[in-house]
Design a protein around this nucleic acid. Structure first.
Lengths: 138, 138
DNA sequence: TATAAACCCTACTTTTTTTATAGGTTTTAT
DNA sequence: ATAAAACCTATAAAAAAAGTAGGGTTTATA
């Protein structure tokens, strides 16, 4: 399951996407709207900023805003940023690969093969669906 | 990611599948083979037994054995038993549904739609692939 | 130029989940 | 009888997730 961090990130991005023509948006507005702790959300927005999705303006009248087009933000990138691997096994992860320590040979591992399939189907969706697709439906 | 519990369960089931013509198998054999803690694995095998996948024989010369055909054990059932939901969001889970509390209306939620797709593609694989498929490849 | 509003940053605490251990009970072959 | 093995429940330890704290920095504006 996705962590709350990731879910909150999606809520925030969606909110920012909806208000992208209104300049910058306050953390507090997003937090209040979705009943998220201000401080927790602050950390998340900071991560999204450092990763290049958001820009911000400090000081009075400041706030956050999208600096990428929604269609250029694949869902997979947000999930990986906040939650880490999308794959169900470390030995199948493209971005966070690790060998399974209790496994003697992943080449002959039947589970490995199935999980590669699951990963590919999942990524096929999550790499191609973007923030824009989410915004469309709301 | 799948928990260790689930991974260990798959190792155990695979081991039991490979040795299904040799009567019962000791917890200790499986644990030693994969470097798993005996006691931890014991709990897992007990769960698998209670769920109807394994049988056991107590006392000296006892052990565990499969009571279902490998082709009748879909991977999804093992994952759900040990790890819970397969879906990425509670509001999209078939077996463990819960509303997302920070979400005002899941019907108009764009993320919900995408995650239903992911769930369906994932389940399409995990419900149809069984222990037999894993055994084949090893 | 003082003030208040807002983001920035790091560290810490709390809670929850996962992983593992402990220790006895019951059953059964020999 | 004895030893080997599964059965059962509770607890502990470790790790991860969620949330909090508090001061630092920047900036609009009066």
């Amino acid at each position: 399951m996705l962590s709350k961090k990731t879910k909150y990130a999606f809520h925030a991005l969606t909110y920012l996407g909806k208000h992208k023509d209104e300049g910058s948006v306050l953390i507090q507005d997003i937090a209040a709207k979705h009943g998220i702790s201000h401080k927790f959300l602050e950390n998340i927005l900071l991560e999204l900023k450092k990763a290049g999705f958001l820009g911000s303006k400090k000081g009075k009248g400041g706030g956050y805003y999208l600096i990428k087009e929604p269609r250029d933000i694949p869902l997979s990138r947000i999930i990986r940023l906040l939650d880490g691997p999308i794959a169900l096994l470390p030995c199948v992860s493209l971005n966070y690969y690790e060998a399974c320590e209790e496994c003697e040979d992943q080449v002959r591992c039947g589970l490995n093969k199935v999980m590669i399939q699951v990963r590919d189907e999942t990524l096929n969706i999550l790499e191609n669906k973007t923030l824009a697709d989410i915004l469309d439906k709301e």
